[in-house]
Design a protein around this nucleic acid. Structure first.
Length: 568
RNA sequence: GACUUGUUAGCUCAGCUGGCAGAGCACAUCCCUUUUAAGGAUGGGGUCCUGGGUUCGAACCCCAGACAAGUCACCA
């Protein structure tokens, strides 16, 4: 790959070579025994119990202030930054001052990783620092980092903020933006907190297939892939629901999975093609139990992650203290539109939507129309965590019919700040009903609904063996983390959000490609032979070979035997 | 998928009505032994996203494209 190095990159490569020339390996193999972290020293410097008179630390150089024979620098380890003080005569006890004058001052740069040994002290200005006695080069950094400085008021100067660069080079983002690291630590805490909640209750964490012959469990467009040995189409899962329920059939009382799901749909600030969902299924429970369970879990998660149940989100306060309000969806529609829609047939519903100014079309069934009414006109009102319950039966093909009303299902969605965060059912376990519901979906798909579910006959067969009454719940982890970290974009809570691939830097001309083709076979050739074989005109040859040399893909070497072209 | 905005030095950004490509930080050289975004002096660094067009002349105007962000549509 050909690349043009900036001046600073060239200087760093020179410094790398200079280190090796001095007998210092810039990428040493030996382990470096760190015994102290920056945060510990900064927080506990005054603690008599702690002895910081000889500490060994390692990290990345984040800034340098060199003043002749002494210098201050900042060292950043996994716990944060600490100032270090480097005095020439402290690190170079003898006559040879090159470790300070050359290695530290000339060959080291911001971004390099070093190890130090020294003692903690406070400077005259009162900054806790490490007085360095020994310095070890651990890794030379060849690319300059963005320089972010923070002033006394905590205001960042020249921050690394371009979202594209931050997502494409998340490693750089993590180095220079400490608050980004915080977000991801919280993400892991969310998952750990939930896992602990489930394990304490004896539920089993399981793994189910990502490659599925039938992508079931949700209304969504799947990714398709191909298995060579089986010579068959496989789909990346859109949900793990149907597999987890098979495990309930198999006799587990409670199973859960933190699952990556994949949906081949649009991307925006709340949708990434792959995302994480927690799904849990518990036997002998119903959706009422699951609501209690969910609100208790979320209260615990908020406490574990944020330290309290009141969470600040975009200037609003969201309270995760249980219990949450429970509102039937038809009542929500009545409350916010004044229209009583229960008992309406499809055409009455369509008329109602039109009257209320919603765009509807003929492919939309009852379920979609009600979903439209709720989604457009009601959803946004539920800022505090609220369970919306009892959805119409057509909207929920995997959910048991309501015990008091066959038009409805025992389903809830948890709304937070007007967004759906969790979805749960009293699971449908009547195999005959289930098959009929799948067949309804098939009709919808024939009508043009490209998100209608596939029929999974093996799942129906599993239900025929008998699944105990079960309640299941799914929760979007990414969205929950967004709420708990006060982020409005899903990309901020994914380490590596999906991006369009970066374009290849080098586009070769036809002449260049032709020459390169021949040279790739031979590796090294006499110039005139190569020119003849290429069959190019003098002018095209000249342009081609010059272009390739410029891209540093080939090199023309002159020797006594004549001109040779080498592949680089 | 539609619309809007953006893309200039390693980073953050100016660049007026089309007239020599700019600043701060970073970098280099020299001086400086407890500094705090931050010592002083001097200096180097550019595919102005790409390709066309208009023009005596384009970072700037026009057309097409790439990439990103925001809004909307769809979805979780």
């Amino acid at each position: 790959m050909s690349r043009v190095l900036s001046e600073q990159e060239q200087l760093r490569r020179k410094a790398l070579a200079d280190l090796r020339e001095k007998g210092i390996e810039p990428y040493p193999a030996a382990m470096f025994h760190v015994d102290t972290m920056a945060k510990d020293v900064k927080q506990n410097y005054n603690d008599e119990q702690k002895n910081f008179s000889e500490v060994v630390m390692a990290g990345r150089l984040m800034s340098r202030r060199i003043m002749g024979k002494a210098a201050f620098a900042e060292l950043q380890d996994a716990s944060g930054k600490i100032q270090i003080y480097i005095n020439r005569d402290e690190i170079c006890k003898g006559e040879d001052k090159s470790l300070y004058n050359d290695v530290f001052k000339k060959h080291l740069d911001i971004g390099d990783i070093i190890g130090i040994k020294g003692n903690a002290f406070k400077t005259q200005v009162g900054e806790t620092s490490i007085n360095v006695k020994e310095l070890t080069v651990l890794t030379k950094s060849l690319k300059p980092l963005p320089i972010v400085k923070t002033d006394k008021e905590g205001k960042a100067h020249d921050a690394f903020t371009d979202p594209e660069q931050r997502y494409r080079r998340r490693y750089v983002d993590l180095i220079v933006n400490p608050q980004v690291k915080e977000t991801f630590i919280k993400r892991t805490k969310v998952i750990n907190s939930m896992r602990q909640f489930f394990n304490e209750r004896g539920y089993l964490e399981v793994e189910t297939p990502i490659l599925q012959p039938i992508p079931g469990g949700a209304a969504a467009r799947p990714f398709i892939t191909h298995h060579n040995a089986l010579n068959t189409e496989l789909y990346l899962r859109v949900a793990n629901e149907l597999y987890l329920k098979r495990l309930i059939v198999g006799g587990f009382d409670g199973v859960y999975e933190f699952a990556k799901d994949f949906r081949n749909e649009g991307m925006d600030r709340t949708h990434n093609p792959e995302f994480t969902v927690l799904e849990i299924y518990v036997a002998y429970k119903d959706y009422n139990w699951m609501m209690d369970f969910t609100e208790q879990m979320l209260e615990k998660v908020a406490k574990d992650v944020v330290g309290k149940t009141n969470v600040e989100f975009q200037g609003k306060e969201i309270n995760f203290k249980a219990p949450f309000a429970r509102v039937p969806i038809l009542e929500a529609i009545k409350n916010h539109t004044g229209v009583e829609v229960s008992g309406m047939n499809e055409s009455e519903l369509r008329e109602t939507c039109k009257k209320l100014g919603l765009e509807v079309d003929e492919t939309m069934g009852k379920a979609k129309l009600i979903d439209e009414l709720f989604g457009e006109l009601c959803e946004k009102h539920y800022v505090q965590p609220t369970f919306i319950i009892d959805y119409p039966v057509e909207m929920s093909p995997l959910c048991k019919k309501h015990r008091d009303n066959p038009e409805l299902t025992e389903r809830f969605e948890l709304m937070i700040n007007g967004k759906e965060v969790a979805n749960a059912y009293t699971e449908l376990n009547d195999p005959i009903d289930q098959l009929e519901r799948f067949q309804e979906q098939l009709k919808l798909s024939e009508k043009g609904d490209d998100e209608a579910m596939f029929i999974d006959l093996d799942f129906v067969r599993a239900l025929e063996y008998g699944m105990p009454p079960t309640s299941g719940m799914g929760i979007g982890i990414d969205r929950l983390v967004m709420f708990l970290t006060n982020n409005t974009s899903i990309q901020e809570v994914l380490f590596f959000p999906q991006m369009r691939p970066e374009r290849k830097a080098v586009e070769l001309s036809e002449a260049e490609k032709a020459i390169l083709e021949i040279l790739k076979r031979e590796k090294s050739m006499e110039l005139n032979t190569l020119k003849e074989q290429s069959g190019l005109s003098n002018k095209q040859w000249d342009k081609g070979i010059k272009g390739l040399t410029k891209h540093s893909l080939v090199k023309v070497n002159k020797s006594d035997e004549g001109l040779k072209v080498d592949l680089l």
